[in-house]
């Protein structure tokens, strides 16, 4: 029988909450970074590109440790954050930050591609019709890049669901607070008789991941159709 116990449900809901929050907080930054990389001409563009992609190539544990040094209670920014009431270490919010950082490169890559696919001449045409920069962005670039925005968000969401290394390093593995599906599976495999729970959570993880990929495919198709209609 496929029956999830309370601890397993807690891990699933926590994972979903962390992944959703991580995606939502990185969304505006992701869009801004993707647009800047696709359209902007500024010094340090390659440096920005490099920093954004760093979590993709660094070992996740390294990223987690860097976050701990930066945002942890004794980290560089920790006391400041604590003074304005934000504590991230060993909290689910910290897990969300770790997941956001890890998913950010995937999100930006997808969005950047879709911004680059927007015909520049349409933005210029909007300009000659009286639209200033922000209007051009919100009325032309953003709606045309929308499928890519969705794809980027879904990728970041999927990455956040599966994130393990950076999260466990930064916020540890506390049931009910920071123990996500991945961390729970890891824990169950370490205790005798935990295999059944691990397997159930694995199935749940597969289902969620497949659903996310499927949704991403659908939006990608929508985007292709829209681009095809340009010709």
């Amino acid at each position: 029988m496929f029956h999830l116990n309370a601890a397993e449900w807690t891990a699933i809901w926590l994972s979903l909450r962390i992944a959703i929050v991580a995606t939502l907080i990185s969304l505006p930054f992701g869009i801004a970074a993707a647009y800047a990389l696709a359209r902007g001409r500024f010094p340090g563009k390659s440096l920005l590109n490099g920093i954004i992609h760093l979590p993709l190539v660094l070992p996740p544990v390294v990223t987690g440790f860097l976050l701990l040094m930066l945002l942890g209670r004794r980290g560089a920014l920790g006391p400041f954050l604590a003074s304005i009431g934000i504590v991230l270490s060993f909290r689910w919010t910290g897990a969300a930050v770790a997941c956001a950082v890890m998913g950010f490169p995937l999100m930006v890559r997808a969005m950047r591609l879709s911004f680059e696919a927007v015909d520049r001449r349409l933005e210029l045409a909007a300009g000659t019709l009286g639209a200033s920069g922000p209007w051009r962005f919100f009325l032309v670039s953003l709606p045309l890049a929308f499928p890519g925005i969705i794809v980027g968000s879904i990728l970041a969401f999927a990455k956040a669901l599966g994130e393990f290394g950076a999260t466990i390093t930064f916020v540890s593995n506390i049931p009910g607070e920071t123990q996500t599906i991945s961390a729970a599976i890891y824990t169950y495999t370490q205790v005798p008789g935990g295999d059944e729970s691990a397997l159930r959570l694995t199935i749940v993880a597969i289902v969620i991941a497949l659903a996310a990929l499927f949704a991403s495919e659908i939006f990608q198709k929508m985007g292709e159709k829209r681009i095809a209609s340009l010709e």
């Binding site: 349409l122 045409a125 909007a126 639209a131 045309l144």
Partner: peptide, 20 residues
């Protein structure tokens, strides 16, 4: 004056209509 403040309408070779 930036283009959006000139109020100059342009008809391009390929119409550049907004597809969305």
């Amino acid at each position: 004056e930036p283009m959006h403040r000139r109020r100059v309408g342009v008809v391009f070779q390929d119409s550049n209509l907004f597809p969305h």
